[in-house]
Design a protein around this nucleic acid. Structure first.
Lengths: 224, 224
DNA sequence: ATGGATCCACCTATGGATCCCT
DNA sequence: AGGGATCCATAGGTGGATCCAT
């Protein structure tokens, strides 16, 4: 695998995005001397990591945007044949122990989402993995309205988490932001504190963006 | 069956609505000397007609509101256990031949919907028919916004109908107002004119309100 | 053929489960 | 454990079909 250096400026990043727009995953993987998996069943994050490599994102970083110097997070969006987001978008882990930010403005979720480079990728199951095309990237800040709705979702989730009631949260909650399992399997355990203040084990969770949110992000830019 | 006289004023109608609010279908049917069916499978319109009788609506009228002197249409709304409309609401037949109104303001749909007495009825399948309660009636005019959206839906449908393309309309079309089959069965036929101006047979259709519309009507009044 | 509506099979949206890499 | 995500069974929504009375 080639190690591409980090882009030094936003302009450099946008140039790289422009360069790969229209490429297929096969083309990108050849640049990286990687082979394309026959299916994504056992390589779910493959395309995302391939693109991170191509763009010089800092790999495996924690609690930081993918391009820390630029403060920009990269998110691929798998699109159906109809051009709609096919899947929800993982944002970050839900804090279940340790100190929790209780102000939306300082939260991990908001820091990740405030400045995002959205990159659509074809994901119609009829298209072989290697032949799927990369679309045009969109660099977006949250709109006022999106920020308000995400804030409300996040505050409702965090209220339950902070009071030891994370097990009451289901994926049905939240307009844009969901809480869902994020683990190797349903038996995975992580420490947290229950309503009585006792240490107990629970399933690890992540924050996810519903497709309604990402669809809206895309729609905004179709309208420009 | 008792023949209840038509209410002479809007106040009289509202008084009758108030009187039956909270009653069960068994109570109403006893007043009318009718028996409650075990299920609605072979008596789909039973509750609606029972209530028309109780209120003195003019039976089996055509192209007119249920209370012609008052200009008021009666619509029952079946509610799920969660208080949401369970079914779409039939409005009227789609004109497939003869002269067609092409102005929303004069349309049959708008004349029926502009002034409606909505009457919620419990319709949770776990509740036996006779034990289902009548709710509180809501006498409503269309709001400006509802009128605009219905107008747009209706115009889009009528454009296709008037140009002989009714078969291109599916129930997926329309924000609030749908066009769906309205017939004894899928083999029923009715005369219409195709794109070439020839007389052909097609399935009879009706206009229906989506549950999104009736849910909004109810929600407006919860908010008052 | 209109007015009163509900039935029910299908299909799709998605919630919960899972997978790889570092 | 965190970051990259997609898989897939199933519940729920609803589109098309149907039913009775007049």
């Amino acid at each position: 695998m080639n190690n591409v250096s980090a882009p030094k400026t936003q302009e450099e990043l946008l140039q790289r995005i422009h360069n790969i727009a229209g490429s297929t995953l096969t083309e990108l993987s050849e640049q990286q001397n990687l082979t394309v998996p026959a299916n994504l069943q056992h390589a779910k994050g493959w395309a995302g990591q391939l693109i991170e490599n191509c763009l010089g994102a800092s790999a495996g970083s924690r609690a930081e945007p993918d391009f820390p110097e630029l403060g920009i997070e990269l998110k691929t969006i798998p699109l159906t044949a109809a051009g709609q987001p096919k899947e929800t978008t993982y944002v970050c882990t839900v804090p279940l122990s340790g100190e929790m930010t209780l102000e939306w403005e300082n939260s991990w979720v908001r820091r990740k989402l405030n400045h995002v480079l959205w990159l659509p990728i074809e994901a119609d199951p009829n298209i072989p993995i290697g032949e799927r095309h990369i679309g045009s990237g969109l660099l977006c800040h949250l709109t006022e309205q999106q920020d308000q709705i995400l804030k409300q979702d996040w505050e409702e989730h965090m209220e339950l988490i902070a009071t030891g009631r994370v097990d009451e949260i289901s994926a049905h909650h939240g307009t844009y932001l969901q809480v869902r399992p994020k683990a190797a399997n349903s038996h995975a355990l992580r420490e947290t504190t229950n309503e009585q203040g006792e240490r107990v084990q629970t399933l690890p969770r992540g924050f996810y963006l519903r497709t309604a949110f990402t669809a809206e992000v895309l729609a905004q830019h179709y309208m420009v």
